[in-house]
Design a protein around this nucleic acid. Sequence first.
DNA 1: GCGTAGTGCTACGATAAATGTAGCAAAGGA
DNA 2: TCCTTTGCTACATTTATCGTAGCACTACGC
Lengths: 129, 129
Amino acid sequence: MAKQADSKTRSVRGSRTGRPIMVLLDLLGRRWSLRILWELRDEPLTSRALRTACDDASPTVLQARLTELREAGFVELEEGGGYGLTPLGRDLCEMVMPLHRFAERWQGSSPSPRLQGEGRGKGEPPRRR
Amino acid sequence: MAKQADSKTRSVRGSRTGRPIMVLLDLLGRRWSLRILWELRDEPLTSRALRTACDDASPTVLQARLTELREAGFVELEEGGGYGLTPLGRDLCEMVMPLHRFAERWQGSSPSPRLQGEGRGKGEPPRRR
DNA sequence: GCGTAGTGCTACGATAAATGTAGCAAAGGA
DNA sequence: TCCTTTGCTACATTTATCGTAGCACTACGC
């Protein structure tokens, strides 16, 4: 990882072109970014509540994402504590919302053999680490 | 909370809940997933053309994402060669498109330091809470 | 004062994922 | 035949994320 603070070439990972859409796609394409926006859609959450909402993701990444999203102007630390969406973040969230309906339809319409059945029966494959 | 653990859900990395939206957010939250959808928005591309379009990302991940997106039913291998969006994938892409306009607006009037150039930590010191 | 509990946030080793380079077999075209 | 392009993979290195623990600070109650 870049030394986290010194490198000026800290362009967002894969987006070396600098085109805004690429920067945005790359930012949102990191783990928990979309999820954080999603979980904050209704109301602000404290860092710990957010962590709980996000499947108990490790605080390390969550803080990293939170910092990035704050720098991007999508999320802010509220007065009374807790993280909330900025007006800009709320606009962005509006574009993520339709995914909910899409996801329902997607799962409902059995698009592909893998990703769902795969002869695995039910339950969760052990997410080994 | 209803636990819908039917056969339709397979864990995709962090999404242990199995709720479709989580599965989708997690799938799209992987590196190059959104970018791939974006690059295929107009026309099918060969794997190598896609790689070029994606900032020369390593073929390893690209193939992995491509496989996942194919299994999800968003992308398919065309007859004459090359990857293209399925009708379902096109629907999904429709939701990613508005991000373009948003991204322009975002970077145009960015309230916070842009994510490229300027690491964090120096320009924004104390963060009183 | 003191203790307890809640915040946001960080350190650090371990593990999973992505990168970069190289290469493969198959399907054409000249 | 040689040459090119296709989709795809191996492998070692680097990067990102995980999981656990803990810090400093603040706001309470006692």
